[in-house]
Each structure stands twice: as structure tokens, then as C-alpha cells.
Amino acid sequence: MVENDRLAQIIVGCKDGSNESFSLLVDMYASRCFGYFYRLTGNRAVSDDLLSELFVRLVNKIGSFKGGSFEGWLFKTASNIFHDYLRNKQRQKKLLEVQKKQFESKLTETKQSNNETFDKLQMQLGKLDSDTRELIMLRFYSQASFKEIAAIRAEPIGTTLSKLHRGLKKLRELME
């Protein structure tokens, strides 16, 4: 309850344009949001960019938060940013279709040069379909209720629960 009151105060401060309140918000959510982006993209540099974009977007969008679950609202914004990123990537891929092989090899080289090693979980997450992967990450990092997640994804709660259950079951199998 105290935590909720504190969050409410911080949000009011953010709406008033307080730099300090935004700073507190970053401290509170940066880690979880970064984890969400990292598990979805598997790329640290991209996750850095998406995290920056998320918080800068919050500065202009915080006024549109009209109460309810802040985590739900925050991760919906994060999800929108991730989808924008996917769309841009898709567009880039289409533009560079002719040089696809070169592009992919460059990506591999970049990953290798960054010494980015994927943990077992990241590798197994890559085997799940993108929608299930996103759902699992949304649930885990937002800590929102199933009802809120269903609302964020604009789908019936039964569908959300079913997809999540199946996805997590598959992940468990992959990890064993």
C-alpha cells in the first residue's frame, strides 16, 4: 500500500514535469524493462536503444495515464515500442533483401565481436514462436495479472491463459 502511494506520488510528479520523479521511475523500472527487451530481442545494443526510447516516450505520454495498473500501462507502451522495432526491422529487411546474406553475416560478426554469449534460456526462448515468447516475457517482467495481460493484448483471458500455459510448458520441456 505504501509502495502504491509512493508510486502514485512519483507519477503525479512526472505529470508535473519533475525531473527527480522521472529519475525515480527509471530506477524503479529500468531493470525489468531492460530484461523484457533483452529476452525478446536477444541483443544488448538494441535493448539499450529500446529502453531509452521507452523512457523518453514516457515524458510525452505520461499525461495519458489515467490510473489503473501502472505496470500494465508501462509494459503496453514497451510492447508497442518493441512492435515498432519489429516493423522497422521488417522494412529494413525488405529494403536489403538483395543483400540479405551479407547483412546476416554482418549481424553474426557483430554479435561475435561484442562477445555476446547467450545463456541457455535465451537460446531456448528463440525456439518459441514470437507471440508466445512475448506473452511469457510480458507476464514475467510486468508482473501484471492475467486479466491485465489479456487487456494489454486485447484478447479474451481464456486465450491468454491457454497460450501462456502451453508456452511455459514447452519452455520447461526445452530447458530440461
Binding site: 527509471v26 539499450d48 511469457i136
Partner: peptide, 28 residues
């Protein structure tokens, strides 16, 4: 669901760099 989410807890994602956090605050 809880058992499966336990796997995620056991494999935490990397934390964002302090530099990144400082940059974000400056951008804000």
C-alpha cells in the same frame, strides 16, 4: 505456470549498464 516462471527467475536477464541509465536520465 509458477514452476515454469521459476526457470526465468533462475536465469535472470542482464542488467542495464549504469552509463545507459545515466544517458537515459540526461535524455529525459
Amino acid at each position: 505456470v509458477q514452476k515454469a516462471e521459476e526457470i526465468l527467475r533462475k536465469h535472470p536477464a542482464p542488467e542495464p549498464n549504469k552509463e545507459l541509465i545515466a544517458n537515459i536520465k540526461a535524455e529525459i
